[in-house]
Computed example of a mutant assay.
Amino acid sequence: MDLFDEIERGRTWREELCDGAVVLRGHALAIEAGLLGAIDEVIAQAPLRHMTTPGGFRMSVAMTSCGRYGWVTDRSGYRYDAVDPDSGKRWPQMPGVFFKLAQEAALAAGFADFVPDACLINCYEPGARMSLHQDKDEHDFRQPIVSVSLGIPAVFQFGGDRREDKAMRIPLQHGDVVVWGGAARLRYHGVLALKPATHPLLGARRINLTFRKAS
């Protein structure tokens, strides 16, 4: 039976990917209204934008941030910055509903005392993708990554410590949360190109919230 069908019917469970990595199926569903309202508030202050990589490529995923730091990429490189380069202002404050979800999900995955200071908001439309990469711009790799999926389905790739390692393909649905840290913290990961779909609350979009401890 197709895993997406299982999730659509409301079954939720904890899925271990490897030592240090887990999918918490449907973990964010109970607070979806609060999350979506908070996302709209952040985007109103710091609009989504398609950033450019150091190599000059326009990212297919539109992004913004909230929290003490935001993630930025441009011709000069990848980095965290306290100021939104588009507005010259500090990034919007991280909503309380975001912070609480990130801490609770990290604890459920076995990572206590997670205090995220950055949340990346990624907006995928059909055809958008994220190539395999490591999250390594942070200062403390002892802190996990918490990734929340909202909207249309996606296939998450979770690989090994080297880019050439074979990656698992994990289907994600609205409300699923992936947490990885410890021995899995620097594993390569990405998202396959999204297939055309619509969601009753978000239309033809997938919103991904990625929480990190940047400083």
Rank of each mutant, 00 (worst) to 15 (best):
Q103L: 01
G127N: 10
A105W: 14
G55V: 07
S76Y: 03
A105Y: 13
V177E: 10
G190K: 02
A30N: 14
F114T: 08
F99K: 15
R169Y: 10
A46C: 08
P144T: 03
E6F: 12
E32W: 06
A183W: 08
P171C: 09
G26E: 00
K195Y: 05
K89F: 10
L35M: 11
A109C: 11
Y80C: 01
P54R: 05
M168A: 05
L35T: 09
Y80W: 03
D2Q: 12
R9F: 06
T198R: 15
L36Y: 05
V42C: 03
M94Y: 04
L186T: 01
V148W: 02
L35P: 06
A82N: 14
V42P: 02
V72E: 09
R79A: 02
V61Q: 03
D81S: 13
G37R: 12
P47M: 02
I145R: 00
Y124T: 08
P196S: 05
L201P: 09
R68N: 09
P153S: 08
Q173D: 11
G110C: 06
V148A: 04
S87F: 00
Q93G: 13
R68E: 12
P54A: 10
T64P: 07
D161K: 01
G190E: 03
H199N: 08
D2S: 15
G127S: 03
Y78H: 12
A128W: 01
D2I: 06
S149M: 10
P200G: 00
H50D: 05
D113S: 09
V148L: 06
E16T: 14
V22G: 02
M63L: 15
V83Q: 11
H139F: 10
D5G: 11
D113N: 15
H139L: 14
D74K: 08
Q45N: 01
T73F: 05
L209F: 02
V191R: 03
G182A: 09
G37W: 02
S149A: 13
A28R: 09
